[in-house]
Structures are given as structure tokens and as C-alpha cells.
Design a binder for these strands. Structure first.
Length: 637
DNA sequence: GCCGTTTTCGGCCCGACTGTTTTCAGTCG
């Protein structure tokens, strides 16, 4: 079978064409190209270690907290300092960054249709079978595979069969070739219910979630449940009988898998108690972290598997994770950091960061009331925040531009301030801050006049429209907004909505540097479908010296409880309590806030219209918002 | 394709389950 590629697949970009600054290649794009090439090479049965090298490189690039394009263009020699990047891959990165394309991938696409890579996502189909489908039946994509299944031609291939054919067809009809991930807060609801059900089983001793849920990743593809029991069979049976299970995907002695009605796929593993720690470690992952830790075990002459740490045939650890880690000469690494992003070196060097905890949070810096699109009153929100043990809550109703939210203008904000001041007189040990979530307009100007902005305790800015501006323009827009000296916080910086909207494209490093320079804080928005910034960006922001805030953006009193999701996100970004501004008690938080603002504020209160460039730009008149070097990052990877 | 207490070649993490194999390859995590 000779494959004729469609014309558009090979005519990506004329050779030698250079990309202009307008379209800088994102880390994620470099990673995507490497992954596609790895998939195609694997289908071609290339050297599996070569395939792995591309996947490792994809992960390294994706996880790199700064723009790989900057490195490739200005310091290409430093690319090989990154783990898993050698001379060859460094050259390919430079190629991608310069031209937007990768000749090796284009050549692979001429040999194999790239539609094949989506077939790899179908359960039961790996590279060998996908290759056979293409070679024997000429199948190039999901549609062709569906026809082949319906015609009964798939079952006749060696290594396939009627059952596999039926399964493939079922999966195709249900679109399981498309990647589906759940925001973790959503997956956690299903997980909590299933865990409670399993713990009620009489044979169950310990039961815990592992996998990406335990690593607190922002989205979860499937759930991994670990259970210890003397006898595995009754536990497995109980699992398979879970009322919410739609389909049994696998069922062995110690392992089983089901799909819930929600579409979530759940893997169960049953172990004996002596292996609990090793099993938990193993199933928590990530895969890349596991591989790195196993290498470390090898270097010590040990073997690590899900049953324990072994010296020859003797198990020397396994009961608890801490015991497993100790046997490998490591302190216990928090699950959030287990991504092979430098945490093992940090652990070996004794420089793991003391991650921020939910209990460190002293206040919430974004919330809404019935004055705009919230569902609870000022007083209800205040009392709920105080009940959480906070010392302060910022009320940040929307500005008028966003019509659907019925935002507050100058008059509305003034009225609200009066109410807030009255309320503050009745609340003990608790303060409401009068703020606003001010829309960043398309040109980067702000949606409130300067006097109104300066009248607020806290100015949070964010955009809700024009998310698709070209990169350079979007960067300029955000920089202009941050150049307004009254701005305190940039909220949900990318505007992404998990599973629905990718978010705006801009030069995040430039924004983070500007924020650090001006003492503006970057928000980790804790709304389950935002979780914006993501973990990589949090890490990058901290490296640039910017402070983080974790805010719930609560639209009613219950949503104040979203704080935990934001804290999890910040922890994955290696944030310590010191990196997060709202771990400070109010006087301290306020002092730093007003310190930063008063030094930015022009001598004579600006009366210019919204967004007019400001005299006495902070860059020249303001002392740094914090001592330089506070973020000395020897502990960072 | 990367990498080095195995250092420029020869390794590269480890085990369970499924289906169709009749002894194991492929897939999955």
C-alpha cells in the first residue's frame, strides 16, 4: 500500500521560510510536533528508545517554565542542558522555532497519514495494530476504521478478532478516539463517591486515590484506586458491582477497570498491606517520575516495583511511601511535585520547597455579590469568609463593560463602598476590602476612570473578550493594562476554560517580568473550570519574581470553598507560603499593597480618561515592591 | 535519540491483563 499524502500535509511551509516575531512558537507546539513524530515513528516500528527520546523531549519542552523559543533563538547552545535534549533534538527545536515546521515530521507524514495517530487513543489499539490496519486494510483515520469494522474486515486480521472489532466499533461510535479529560474538581466528586463505596466493603483495609488525582493535576483523564486487603477477590467483585459502573473494561485477580456512566475510566489495584506504600508510590506516578526513581534505585543496586524496594530477593521497604523513599535515600516528595521536573534533584539536595497549604491562606482577593453577577449579599459573603477563618475578603464586582454581569460603575462602587464601611464596623477581626474586577478593554485600557480606580482598596484587572488577538498584540494589550499604576492583581491571566477554551496567547514571560517589576500580583484562579494560571505558569511567575495570589472568584458563599483547588494548583507550581500574598495577615498584606501603590501613584491624582498612559511611570519612580533576591531560587529546578 | 559510579558504546523501568497465541504479543498504566 503506497500512501499518497494530501497536498496540505506536506506543504506546511516553504523551506527556508522564517517565522516573524508575530507568531512565536509556543512550548506546547514544539511538544505537539515531537509527540506526533513519536507516534508516527512508533507505528513504523522504529527503535522504541528513539521514540521514547522524542516523548521525553516533548515533556521536557512542555514543562520548561520559560519560552523555549527564546532559548532556541538567543542561546541555542543551552538547549542541550535540558534533560533528554541532545545535539540532534536541540537542532530540531531550533528548526521548529525558526520555521514553525519539522522536516523529519513532514517526511514521516509522507510515509504515513497523520490521522493514524488519533487511532492510538482507542483502547485496545497500539502502534502494532494501527500499523496492521493501515498496511493490510489501508485504514487512515477513524472514519475508515469504522467502515472496516462494519464490513467485518478487521476481525480477519492476525492479532485481531471479533471481540476486538466490536470493541473498536463501540469506542468509535462513542468518540473515544477524542481525548477527554475532566477538571480535577469534577473528577474528584465521582472519586469521593466511589471511594466511600469501596471503603464500606468489609474486606477493605486501606483505600486511596493515586494517579493524577492525587498529584492534583488540573485535569484528570482517569482515576486510579489503590486498596489493600488480605483477599483481593471480594474487593474486586465489589468494585465491579459499583452501581455507577457502565462497563467492565478489565477484570483480573488483583486488577480491574471499569467505565463510569460519567465516562470516567477507573483502574483498581488490590495489594497486600506490606506493599501499600510501594503501590501508592507506583500508582501515583507520574510515569516519568517513576522511571526516574527506578533509575535511582538501579544506581543503588536496588529494584523498585509496586510491591516494594528489593535488594536481590529481599524486600527492604514497601509498607509506607516514606519507607520506600528512605530506602532510596530520598525524603518524601509531595505528590504534586512528582512530574520529573527537577524534584528528585531537589530532594537529593535537601531543597524541596515547603509548599503553601490551605491553612496558610488568610484571605480571599476576588469575589462577587448580587451587586453584579454574584448570588449572595455583601453580608452573607463576609460572614462566610469569616467562618472560614479568614481575616479579609475583597469584594470585586465587575466593571460595567461586561454587560451580562450588570457591573458597577463609579456611582455603584461608591454606594457599595458606603455599605462595606458600614458592614466593617459591625464585623470583628474581619475586614471587607472594596475592590473591583475591572475589565481590560481590547486596546489595553481599563474600564473605569482613574479617580474611581484610585478610590478602591484593591484593583483586580482581567479580560473577558478579544481573547483571540495575535500574540504580539495581546502582549501589548496586557502590558498596557499592567502599566496603569493603580493595578494590583492580574486575574485569571489567560482566560482559559478547561475543555472549552484554550485561553489567550501572549508572551507570558514578558507579562510575568512586568508584573514582578511593578509589584503586581498574578492570580491563580481557583474556579474549577479555570484553574488559571496553570502549574507551569505559576512556576515561571515565581522564577521571574512575581508574587502570586490564590483567589476563588466566588460568585456565592459556597464557592469560597474553591480555595483548595487553587492551593493545589499553586503547590504544583512549587509555590511556598512566602510566594503567595494572601497568606499574609491583613495589616501586612495591606502594607505591601499600599506600599507598592503609593510609590506608583502619580503625585497629582490622574484625571485622564481610562487607559491614558500615565505620567510618572512606575518603572522609573517606584522602588521595587520587595527586596531583590527574596526569590533566590537555588531550590528551583 | 540520549547518556555516562555502565562515559563514546551499549544500555535504556516494570509488571498485569486481554485476546487469541496454544506459549505469547500487544496494550496499558
Amino acid at each position: 500500500m503506497v500512501y499518497q499524502p494530501p497536498p496540505e500535509a506536506s506543504a506546511a511551509r516553504a523551506p527556508g521560510t522564517e517565522l516573524t516575531g508575530e507568531t512565536r512558537v509556543e512550548n506546547a507546539e514544539v511538544a505537539r510536533l515531537f509527540r506526533e513524530l513519536a507516534d508516527l515513528l512508533e507505528i513504523e516500528e522504529a527503535n522504541p528508545f528513539r521514540v521514547r527520546a522524542y516523548r521525553t523531549a516533548a515533556r521536557t519542552v512542555e514543562n520548561h517554565p520559560e519560552a523555549i523559543a527564546d532559548l532556541a533563538l538567543h542561546h541555542p547552545g543551552q538547549l542541550t542542558d535540558l534533560p533528554g535534549i541532545g545535539d540532534d533534538l536541540a537542532g530540531k527545536i531550533v528548526e521548529i522555532v525558526r520555521t514553525g515546521g519539522l522536516p523529519a515530521l513532514e517526511s514521516a507524514r509522507r510515509r504515513l497519514p497523520s490521522g493514524l495517530t488519533s487511532l492510538l487513543r482507542l483502547p485496545g489499539l497500539g502502534p502494532r495494530r494501527v500499523h496492521a490496519l493501515f498496511r493490510e486494510l489501508g485504514v487512515q483515520n477513524a472514519a475508515a476504521l469504522r467502515s472496516a469494522c462494519r464490513a467485518g474486515r478487521v476481525r480477519e486480521l492476525p492479532g485481531f478478532g471479533a471481540r476486538l472489532e466490536e470493541q473498536i466499533l463501540r469506542e468509535l461510535v462513542e468518540h473515544r478516539d477524542e481525548e477527554r479529560r475532566f477538571p480535577r474538581p469534577v473528577a474528584a466528586q465521582y472519586a469521593d463517591a466511589l471511594l466511600e463505596y469501596m471503603r464500606a466493603g468489609k474486606d477493605v483495609k486501606e483505600a486511596e486515590w493515586a494517579g493524577s488525582l492525587r498529584r492534583r493535576k488540573d485535569t484528570v483523564g482517569d482515576l486510579d484506586l489503590l486498596i489493600t486487603a488480605r483477599r483481593a477477590e471480594p474487593v474486586t467483585q465489589r468494585f465491579l458491582a459499583y452501581p455507577e459502573a457502565e462497563q467492565v473494561l478489565a477484570h483480573g485477580a488483583t486488577r480491574a477497570a471499569i467505565r463510569l456512566r460519567s465516562g470516567l475510566h477507573v483502574d483498581l489495584r488490590v495489594l497486600e498491606a506490606g506493599s501499600y506504600g510501594a503501590g501508592l508510590y507506583y500508582f501515583t506516578g507520574s510515569k516519568a517520575h517513576n522511571i526516574a526513581v527506578r533509575r535511582l534505585a538501579q544506581a543503588h543496586g536496588l529494584k523498585l516495583n509496586e510491591y516494594g524496594v528489593w535488594r536481590g530477593d529481599t524486600r527492604i521497604a514497601g509498607r509506607t511511601e516514606r519507607e520506600v523513599a528512605r530506602a532510596l535515600g530520598l525524603p518524601l516528595i509531595p505528590p504534586e511535585l512528582r512530574e520529573d521536573r527537577g524534584e528528585i534533584d531537589a530532594a537529593l539536595g535537601g531543597t524541596l520547597p515547603p509548599l503553601v497549604e490551605l491553612g496558610d491562606i488568610r484571605g480571599d482577593l476576588q469575589s462577587h455579590t448580587t451587586a453584579s453577577d454574584g448570588r449572595d449579599s455583601l453580608e452573607t459573603m463576609a460572614r462566610a469568609a469569616r467562618d472560614l477563618g479568614y481575616g479579609y475578603l475583597a469584594i470585586t464586582d465587575h466593571s460595567p463593560h461586561l454587560k451580562v454581569t450588570h457591573g458597577l460603575d463609579r456611582k455603584g462602587l461608591s454606594r457599595q463602598r458606603t455599605e462595606i464601611e458600614e458592614l466593617n464596623r459591625t464585623l470583628h477581626d474581619f475586614v471587607l476590602l472594596a475592590g473591583s474586577e475591572v475589565d481590560i478593554l481590547a486596546d489595553g485600557s481599563l474600564d473605569l476612570d482613574d479617580d474611581t480606580l484610585w478610590s478602591l482598596d484593591l484593583v483586580v484587572v482581567s479580560f473577558h473578550s478579544s481573547l483571540t488577538l495575535p500574540r504580539r498584540e495581546q502582549t501589548r494589550r496586557v502590558l498596557r493594562a499592567l502599566s496603569h499604576p493603580a493595578v494590583d492583581i492580574l486575574a485569571h491571566p489567560t482566560g482559559r476554560l478547561l475543555g472549552r477554551r484554550a485561553g489567550a496567547t501572549f508572551d507570558f514571560d514578558e507579562i510575568a517580568r512586568a508584573a514582578a517589576d511593578r509589584g503586581i500580583m498574578l492570580e491563580v484562579n481557583a474556579q474549577p473550570d479555570r484553574l488559571d494560571l496553570d502549574d507551569i505558569a505559576v512556576q515561571a511567575a515565581i522564577r521571574h519574581g512575581a508574587r502570586i495570589v490564590i483567589s476563588t472568584d466566588a460568585h456565592d458563599r459556597h464557592e469560597l470553598g474553591f480555595m483548595r483547588w487553587g492551593v493545589d494548583q499553586a503547590r504544583r507550581g512549587w509555590a511556598t507560603g512566602a510566594d503567595v500574598a494572601n497568606t499574609r495577615p491583613l495589616p501586612e498584606f495591606r502594607k505591601s499593597l499600599h506600599g507598592a501603590r503609593s510609590s506608583r501613584r502619580p503625585r497629582r491624582a490622574a484625571t485622564a480618561s481610562p487607559g491614558t498612559p500615565h505620567p510618572g511611570s512606575a518603572r522609573t519612580t517606584r522602588a521595587p515592591a520587595r527586596p531583590p533576591g527574596r526569590h533566590a531560587t537555588a531550590r528551583r529546578p
